[in-house]
Each structure stands twice: as C-alpha cells, then as structure tokens.
C-alpha cells in the first residue's frame, strides 16, 4: 500500500474532528493535550496513513499538510 503521512499545525487546529470522520484508515485521533487557544488538537495516532488527503480536504482551518510516497519510491520499496 502507498504510504503517506500528515503534518498537523496543532496550534491552529480547533479539534472539530471532521478529519477523524473523513479518514478511511482511522489514522487520526484527538490528542489529550490542548493547544494555546485551548483546543484539543488532532494527531496522527496510527502509522497507516495512505496520504489520501481526505482529512485535509475537509479541514476547515487548513491545518493539515499531506505527504505521499511517490509511485517510483513505492515501486522501489515493493
């Protein structure tokens, strides 16, 4: 499976959890920690992200940057 990951700007995340619903891999969850604005923020909790971008697409605050293994790298790895 193509591997991906996300970078989350935890300081601008408002913890709305829409990304958690959108993630087909259940890779995301709400942190127990809170950010400076007082929100619990989202974090990558499982190493099974495929970089599908669903989470980032529905994120209202554009806090998620998504990375995905290139097809070449994927082939190399396989």
């Amino acid at each position: 499976m193509i591997k991906g990951t996300v970078l989350i700007n935890s300081e601008t995340c408002k913890g709305c959890e829409l990304c958690i619903v959108a993630c087909p891999q259940d890779s995301l969850s709400l942190s127990q920690k809170i950010n400076l604005r007082g929100y619990r923020y989202v974090e990558l909790s499982q190493d099974n992200c495929t970089g599908c971008t669903n989470c980032a697409i529905v994120c209202p605050d554009a806090v998620i940057t998504v990375y995905r293994q290139s097809k070449q790298n994927y082939k190399k790895a396989v």
Partner: peptide, 26 residues
C-alpha cells in the same frame, strides 16, 4: 519519511496566515 515523499496537499497560498474566527467545524 517526509523527505522521501511528495507533498500532495497543503494550505493554498491564496489564504492569508490569519487565524480564522469561524467556530470549530464551520
């Protein structure tokens, strides 16, 4: 991992860095 990967989604440059006042999930 990120070094080996390509960025496939990021905040558009056409949005400012201003923190949005909208409620969570709006």
């Amino acid at each position: 991992l990120i070094d080996e990967m390509q960025c496939v989604y990021q905040k558009p440059g056409t949005l400012t860095d201003e923190y949005m006042h909208y409620c969570p999930g709006c």
